[in-house]
Design a protein around this nucleic acid. Sequence first.
DNA 1: CTCTTATATGACTTGACGGGCATATGAAGC
DNA 2: GCTTCATATGCCCGTCAAGTCATATAAGAG
Lengths: 112, 112
Amino acid sequence: MESSFAIIAEPNRRAILSLLAASEHSVGEIEHQLRMPQTSVSKHLRVLRDAGFVESRVDAQRRVYRIRPEPLMEVDEWLAPFRRFWTLHVDALERHLDRMDQEPEPRKGKKR
Amino acid sequence: MESSFAIIAEPNRRAILSLLAASEHSVGEIEHQLRMPQTSVSKHLRVLRDAGFVESRVDAQRRVYRIRPEPLMEVDEWLAPFRRFWTLHVDALERHLDRMDQEPEPRKGKKR
DNA sequence: CTCTTATATGACTTGACGGGCATATGAAGC
DNA sequence: GCTTCATATGCCCGTCAAGTCATATAAGAG
């Protein structure tokens, strides 16, 4: 299962990731929230962990999973060359910047 | 072939898209640049066009393909809820970008 | 009109992945 | 200890998608 892109091609895995984006969750919580079989949840979590999208913490008999950002950052970076196609439109640019500029302090000269 | 994510899961399609991100290209140009069989290029372009990632223009016997941004915008928007994981750690982001600037592929997987 | 160039399509094969089910591991509680 | 809860794993099967090869379409060139 090579690339990060292949990992997030699976709808159930995207659902799991989106759920974990809000906060960390145990396997059982994911199972009930997303209404999918436990064995399926575990398998997808295994794939996600092997690919570095999530990590787990042990809480008694439970395993609590949370997001690891690195693989999604890769995807985000792959999108970079394409952003000019929609940041050229002003309204789309503003929506995009509104999302990006949550952080108050502009960094020193990186790209852009 | 449902989602935009499934479309970009294919490495050759990502290569085609990245090539087209720079400028529009004919099928033959893509074939030569990426060194893949023409029939394969055509099939991937068919998939990309059906999914709205590209559109084609007719130039004599050639078909010139160019990017259409909408599906990639979808992907970009799906990433939005995850961005806090790296925009909250600006320093880590900077370190990451610095590494990316120097070496093209520091691909590594580890756990904590 | 024929030949060549450029691209698309169809048939077939192969391999990978997800779902389902049974089962294994493992920690808790009694 | 045994039982229950929580999660993981192994196996089988159906599906679907990518690659290959052959062929079809369609537009110049001569």
